[in-house]
């Protein structure tokens, strides 16, 4: 009876027969399984299909003025996050996310460096054309702190499927540069997000030692932020929209 329970105990404690030197057999597949991770720390990348209505209006204004200004979609993001099991059913996530959107009007420029490079490379550099420089350059950045609670909808021992929501705090910065000027602005506000998550529940060992887990999250965030500047009068940098992100974590 005790011998029968031993594999279960060892499985839960994460030890092998070989580690206890009770049995020199190679562990079976079931014995190699890692215990579920209750805490994970990691980073991820994501893409957001953001609203940016005011930035689109500015793009339209540039186009009407005969300036080929392009807003670069979608928004790409990077995040650092911590996930922890609150109970069997609930999981919490705390994340620091950075998203960016840029826009530019570019012109080809043949600088002296380009000419010299072309001459020194026997004309090879000329084949690729002159480099482009940003005449007008806009960059929007949003840094968000996200606290999300997730409820487990289902899944298996291997993966869990979660539904969650939570508040966000968003701080944005905006800069519009032209050849001789630069206009900066910023602001902050609270927002919310709702998301679905698919989390790997059992670690796999990278290089035989690093316990790695994967997770995918898709959702919608609402986080419009008005620029504080008096001149802006309600100009909103709006990173609201559907998003998807993929993260990899170290399970602890």
């Amino acid at each position: 009876m005790i011998a029968g329970l031993l594999p279960v105990v060892l499985l839960l404690t994460g030890q092998t027969f070989a580690g206890l030197q009770l049995d020199s057999r190679k562990p079976a597949a079931s014995e190699e399984q890692e215990p579920p991770a209750s805490f994970r720390l990691g980073m991820g990348m994501g893409v957001s299909f953001v609203d940016m209505a005011d930035e689109e209006a500015l793009e339209e204004e540039f186009m009407q003025a005969g300036v080929g200004y392009d807003l670069d979609y979608p928004a790409w993001g990077f995040d650092i996050e911590v996930l922890g099991n609150i109970s069997d059913r609930f999981r919490g996530r705390l994340g620091l996310t950075m998203n960016t959107v840029s826009g530019a009007y570019q012109e080809a420029s043949a600088s002296w460096e380009y000419i010299w490079l072309g001459l020194f490379t026997g004309g090879l550099a000329f084949l690729f054309g002159p480099p482009s420089t940003d005449v007008i350059d806009m960059s929007d950045m949003c840094i968000s702190v996200e606290a999300t609670g997730f409820y487990r909808l289902g899944g298996s021992d291997a993966v869990g499927f979660y539904l969650g929501a939570g508040p966000t705090y968003n701080s944005i910065s905006r800069e519009l540069r032209s050849p001789d000027t630069g206009v900066k602005g910023g602001g902050s506000s609270f927002g919310v997000l709702g998301a679905l998550r698919l989390d790997q529940e059992r670690t796999h060992r990278l290089l035989g030692c690093i316990p790695i887990l994967l997770g995918v999250e898709a959702g919608y965030r609402y986080c419009p932020v008005e620029i504080d500047d008096e001149e802006a009068e309600g100009f909103t940098v709006d990173f609201s929209g559907p998003y998807i992100r993929v993260g990899n974590y170290i399970g602890l």
Binding site: A65, S109, P179
Partner: peptide
């Protein structure tokens, strides 16, 4: 000809807006 074109291109940029 190539140098002439490049030197011309290096002249002050003309933007599609007035400074």
């Amino acid at each position: 000809a190539t140098l002439s074109l490049l030197i011309l291109a290096c002249e002050d940029a003309t933007y599609p807006f007035q400074q």
